[in-house]
Amino acid sequence: MARVLIVGYGNPLRGDDALGWHAAQQLSENIRRQDVEILTCHQLTPELAERLSRSERVIFIDAACVGVPGEVSQQRVSPAVSAAVDFTHHFDVPALLACTQILYGVCPQAVLCSVAAESFELTESLSPAVEAAVPELLERVYRLLE
């Protein structure tokens, strides 16, 4: 069982929304620990709850649509059910954690690491501001793994 799960998510074809994929790729190349599992996905879905339930900690990596482009942030996230949740496209991290808690009776500690995006236009490249922020983002993830 992976002690730590890292989830990089977003749309890899929509500019800075691919941040989670880029970060996960670099983390996969650099982390050799058996107790760390890294996965990527387009969006959060209820199915991830089962995987979360088998982890002690989870680190989500996503682009933020607010803030100064390139600004790195991290925050603890707690389970919360959104009244607006009506379909899986709208699943967010608190909702996924709530889902895990309700269905499996456990909930990992969760941290969301993000970089404020500059552009979500159709491209597979990150914007210069977000690209430049990736090293700092990775550094934060490494510290969380210590």
């Binding site: 209820p46 949740v85 009506d86 909702a95 309700i102 269905l103």
Partner: peptide, 10 residues
């Protein structure tokens, strides 16, 4: 919705 189902019929 699916959350209602999770809570009532896990």
């Amino acid at each position: 919705n699916i959350f209602g189902v999770m809570q009532s019929h896990p």
